[in-house]
Amino acid sequence: MNDAASVVMLIVSLTLIKATPLIYAALAGVISERSGVINIGLEGMMVAGAFTAVAVSGPTGSVVLGIIAGIIAGALFGLFLGILATKFRVDQIVAGTGINLIAIGGAAFALVLVFGQPGASKEVPSLEGASWILIALAFASAAGLHGLLYYTPWGLRVRACGENPHAVAAAGLNPLRTRIIAVTIGGALAGLGGAYLSVGELNLYSDGMVAGRGFIALAAVIFGRWTPFGATGAAIFFGLFEALQFALQRSGIPNEAMQALPYIAALVALAGLTGRVRAPAADGVPY
């Protein structure tokens, strides 16, 4: 009985740990897509946040500075995508793919420059026991984003931009600026998610550590019907699959099958849900 309880506790805590970066990234996807910009670059923004947090935390010895730097790095990539998607009317999918390459390649390049070694950074100061703060903050962010989107004038504007940016312009507002700000905030959230991975859950950056979480977050956005709480729920669901991976390590199920599970779950969710949920009408449509 005690054993069962401790297994459940283990799975619950692992789920929270694994869901946290997904929650940040999924919230980033929600705010971006609610404003009308599909953010394929979430993965790259997480990478930027994860690497920058380590690159700053190491030399300065301050994990807080590292996290702030990670947020800023993600936000800068968000700003980049936001400007590309609005002012330059770049195809959002292709631009996001490009941003992923830039961030992933850039992190690998900078890793050699900063730490003098490829593959992984040296160990740096991390949050260690205090990483629960970022877990709690993820849930607070979900609530905050919900309030922002549904109760504030700016949130109404964001939602209007995602549905019909021309209506926003007709009301005398600038939909491009709203979209850029929304995607930049999204980038900051994704950067924070990345920073959590590198200096919250671990204490280093290694190439490939984000491992597609940015893409799973995209599925979580759809699964969560483009709402902050829905996306958070979906992120927890995908986090559970990641947690099960560890919990069932000795169960005889091949490890690779367990690793593939979150992705397969996302595929199934994608197939099962599409058509039954309605995306923002102007999602992915340039203004």
Partner: peptide
């Protein structure tokens, strides 16, 4: 107009 928003939200947007 934004079809999925309410009348008052459309009229007072901004």
């Amino acid at each position: 107009l934004v079809g999925r928003l309410r009348v008052w939200q459309n009229i007072l947007l901004g």
